[in-house]
Design a protein around this nucleic acid. Sequence first.
DNA 1: CGCATCACG
DNA 2: ACGTACGTGATGCGG
Length: 885
Amino acid sequence: MTKNKKLLLIDGNSVSFRAFFAMHNVLDKFVSDDGIHTNAMYAFNNMLDIILREEKPTHALVAFDAGKTTFRTEMFSDYKGTRAKTPPELMEQLPLIQEMLNLRGIKTYDLKNYEADDIIGTMSRKGEIEGMDVSIITGDRDLTQLTTDKVTVRVNVKGVTETEAYTPEHVKEKLGITPDQIIDMKGLMGDNSDHYPGVEKVGEKTAIKLLNQYGTMEGLYEHVDEMKKSKLKEHLINDKAQAFLSKKLATINCDAPVELKIGDLEYQGDNQEQLIKFYQKMNFNSFLEKMDVEVESSTKELPKIEFSELNDEAIEKIYNYEQPQTLIVESFGENYHVSPIIGLVIESNGHYYGTTDIAILENDKLKNWLADDSKEKYIFDNKKTVALLRRYGCELAGISFDMLLVSYLLDTNDNKTDIGIVAQNYGHQLPTEDEFYGKGVKKAIPEDEQILLNFLCQKAQVINILHDKMFSELKANDQDSLYDEIELPLSNVLASMEIKGVKVDATRLKEMQNDFAKRLDDIEQQIYTEAGQEFNINSPKQLGVVLFEDLKLPVIKKTKTGYSTAVDVLEKLKDKSAVVQKVLDYRHISKINSTYAVGLQKFIQPDNRIHTIYQQTLTQTGRLSSIEPNLQNIPIRVEEGRQIRRAFVPQDDDWEMFSADYSQVELRVLAHISGDENMQEAFKEDYDIHAHTAMRIFGLDSTDEVTPDMRRKAKATNFGIVYGISDYGLSQNIGITRKEAAQFIDSYFEQYPGVKKYMEDIVKFARENGYVETIMHRRRYLPDIHSKNFNIRNFAQRTAMNTPIQGSAADIIKVAMINMQKRIKDENLQANLLLQVHDEMIFEAPKSEIPLLEKIVPSVMDSAVKMDVPLKVGFAHGKSWYEAK
DNA sequence: CGCATCACG
DNA sequence: ACGTACGTGATGCGG
């Protein structure tokens, strides 16, 4: 009779904490009508839906902590001593979470002097005695000590909606010990967040090792005298009392005086009527929709802005108005090089004018207004708007405020290219594109054009409202010239590069595709023969089975999901089986074929050109990125791939491709900002920098003594320095031991003491200011620099070292692009700037202009920014991109 | 839709 | 004791 009963026990406090921080980034967006935050309630309820669906409990209880003092604080006054105070925004939600749970038919409970854990432990044992299956939901791994054959503990991972289920087997698999041994482990290792000590220098790994040997802490201490002399033994003996206390603290009390009987916990299901009221008060529209309750239209619809038709009369007013006006040009579709304009709104002197009749773009006065540089305009995403309008025969000028660019400069994390998100980050209600148009199959233009135009008016309004605030933040950050002189002008340069596009020879790509297809077929057959079976070579999973199980090759590296079959692994296995080299060949050709030979053809437009989109507000460092397609990763390192570049051609037969690139910009930037005299000298004297580095770190007298291998290692070290060096990373990269790598780094810093100082100073700066910046004051915030997590903190430190270098290099080429575009115009050249690949610019130009470009381009590039070391530029030209290198 | 892999700087 | 190089985007697989 009790056979099908299922008891669900939830650790209310720990799940609430998890829920709160999982949705911490949207804290200010989840507020009830009464001004109470609701993010944790929302996430908790989301999780509850999933758990109820999966577990189908007959009985349920959510346990909470009763207060700060418990029997544990009596045993150890400092228990949870360093625990930060619960944020008030969560505090106010805790009673409401209980109320919500009760409305959902679930009992809540707390008990003076005991923690939620103890209530859960106690009730789980009671349930077990009655023969029930028990599921425990918690954010706290320590509860896995409660797992038995009948009790499963599900621990939240990544937020709250996902859990990892611990059975005794899973505990064993994950930790290598039994659930009973967890308290012994905690006793030995202590707990930082609960703030109890354990044994010095013993962490998880050591604790588990000891427990595998001795079973329990008691067993361990019986034999501690027999251990051979070591620091570990000393610590164990010294901290014995602490360890036993910690074990007690870690032990969940399964015999707490809980006055509940299992019968009291019957799951009641939702109290529909009350719950609807509750959800309405909390503005939980998505939960209401799930309950099939009509969501009040007032909560769903945007507030209305009065607007009138954008017609000839309105245009007259707009044209004659002298103050800044705000322009919204709305398109619908994925890629703005092909998607149509669906609406226009202009805000002028507090009035809004809108239309969905795109024929208005033929109005000459409007055209003039758009193109007039003296008519000041506010906008969101200048580059996109320029590209859209150009397809409709309109020019755009006079932009002073591009809210997208400004928001990116203020914080590179706010880069979502979605005005709704930027608005929400500043506390303004504006739907995102997904929210307004819908996602996936549901995505559509609203049938009622009034609704669409109202949305556009809302966008215009937000731009107006935020202009002053964002601009003053920009000034306060000393970023106004970065905006005025770099990002805004650059957006126009990028727009013309995208619009111009680059000519691609589809016929050549097709030929390559056919050739690759034949070769792939051939290699495929050879692989099948040698492997003795047919399988999907492109599936790392299937390939792993063939290589490591059937062919029994040694496993060198594993991934989360199985065997690694990455290049560096296969390179090491080349000698073991002939099939490995063939797999490498297959992969290589398959990549080039699918991504480039085949992939690029899909992007060739009727004008025979490819129009990429440069993302100007995406990267954390200030670089550009290129999408649909990515033209910044066209192959070059391996000849077969490099052939792809033959398909990139100039627009006419008597034109050529011309490419110019900075040599070693990042190292030059490092030499400049670190002020290191030795590195600066190397660049001033135009030495071979890697050979020079080799000479220094290997202690040679002249670069003549540098062997190619020394140079290779020095080069890798230089790269490593730029990336924020670690001995491990360097050792992996050049195949030396970690120790050797550490020595490399030491002698590097000895030779370049300025670099060492820079690395130390920049991390310190990041810690003190919370951000780092480039030579042009581009900022990157690094909140992780204070993380308690070793890995996360180290990553932030490397980022602090790398970002000013990579970012300043990005600043430099951006200036060069702007100057170059201007120069082309001033000199009346036909040449077009087509592409940027981080440290190089690619042009097409009539052959007759090449000699001039050879003079102009390098001089514009190397004079872009004044630094303490010279910039050096190389260049080449030819009948395709392949030759221009 | 996340993961592994690999293309570029 | 921890587990790494910095910054990107596209593809194919498989749940």
